[in-house]
Simulated scan of single mutants.
Amino acid sequence: MSNVEIIPIEDKYIEGVLNVSILSFPITWSKESFEQELSNRYARYVVAVKDGVVVGFGGMWIIIDEAHITNIAVHPEFRGFGIGSMLVDALINICKIEGVTAATLEVRVSNFKAINLYKKFGFVEEGIRKSYYEDNKEDALIMWKRNFQL
C-alpha cells in the first residue's frame, strides 16, 4: 500500500495503537501498558502510519540476543495490503541491527493468516502452549526464527 510509513513509535501514536489493538484482539493491552512500553529499555515498537493515522503496529522485547514479538496488528480496514509484512520486516531488521540471534512469538492456532505471514519470514512451529489465551482458552502456537543474517 502506498503512502504507508513504518516508523519508531512515539507517544503521540499511543491512542492510534490502542485503537488498532482494540479492533484486532479480543483482549487488548491498556493504554497505560502501551505507554509503559515507551520507557521499557527492552521494548522496540514500530507503527504503520498512513496520512498521519496509525493503521498498524508491531512490538517486541529484546533481551540479550533474543527477541520476543509481543504483538502485531493491522487495522481491519487496512488488512490485505501488505502492512503486516512491512511490520514484521521492520522488526526483523531491528533484530539484525541489534545482533539478535533468535526471535519467538505466540499466535492463536486458529490464526492461519498470521501463521502464514510468520512462515513467510522464516518462523517455524516449535511447540504449543495449551489454553494460552484467556478469552477462550485457545492454544497458542510457539514459533521461532533462528536464522538472522544481515
Rank of each mutant, 00 (worst) to 15 (best):
L150W: 10
G127Y: 06
L18F: 13
A140F: 05
D135F: 05
S24K: 12
N40M: 01
N40K: 04
V49S: 09
N40R: 05
T104K: 09
P8Y: 11
G82F: 04
Q36N: 15
N116V: 00
L38C: 03
T70L: 12
I92P: 00
S85E: 14
V20E: 03
P26E: 01
L87T: 00
E15N: 12
L91K: 08
F34R: 06
V47K: 02
N136G: 14
G59M: 08
Y42Q: 10
E138C: 11
L105W: 09
E125C: 07
K137A: 12
T104F: 15
T28V: 06
I6E: 11
N19I: 03
A114K: 08
G59H: 11
M60W: 02
K50G: 00
L141E: 06
N71W: 00
A102Q: 13
A103I: 03
L150F: 13
G58L: 06
I72N: 02
V88L: 10
E106L: 08
R129P: 02
M1F: 04
G16W: 07
K120L: 05
L150D: 13
M60F: 03
M86F: 02
V100R: 04
E134R: 15
F123D: 02
F78H: 11
S2D: 15
S85D: 13
F81D: 09
D65Q: 10
K113E: 13
E77V: 05
T104N: 08
S30F: 08
G80C: 01
E125I: 02
W144H: 04
I94N: 03
G122F: 06
K96E: 12
A73K: 11
I128H: 06
I9H: 10
E106S: 09
P8S: 15
T101V: 12
A67W: 04
I142P: 04
Q36R: 15
R41F: 03
L150G: 11
T70H: 01
T70E: 07
K12P: 06
F57P: 01
D135R: 03
Y118L: 08
N93L: 07
I97G: 00
H68M: 07
Y133L: 08
Q149E: 13
Q36M: 14
E66A: 11
I64M: 13
A103E: 03
S24H: 09
L117D: 06
S110Y: 00
V109M: 09
S85N: 13
G84N: 09
L23R: 12
R108Y: 01
Y132W: 11
I62V: 14
W29P: 05
D89N: 14
F25W: 01
N3M: 00
K31Q: 12
V20D: 02
F57M: 12
F123E: 03
E37Q: 12
V4R: 08
F25R: 01
K96L: 10
N19Q: 13
G52A: 04
I9R: 10
I62H: 11
V20G: 04
Y133M: 09
F25V: 00
G122P: 02
N147S: 14
K145Q: 00
I83S: 10
I62C: 09
T104Y: 15
R146V: 10
P8K: 15
S85F: 05
W144Q: 07
W61V: 00
I128W: 05
K119R: 13
F57H: 13
I22V: 14
I6L: 08
F25E: 04
N19D: 14
E32W: 04
Y42R: 13
E98I: 01
E5N: 15
R41M: 02
S2A: 09
A67H: 02
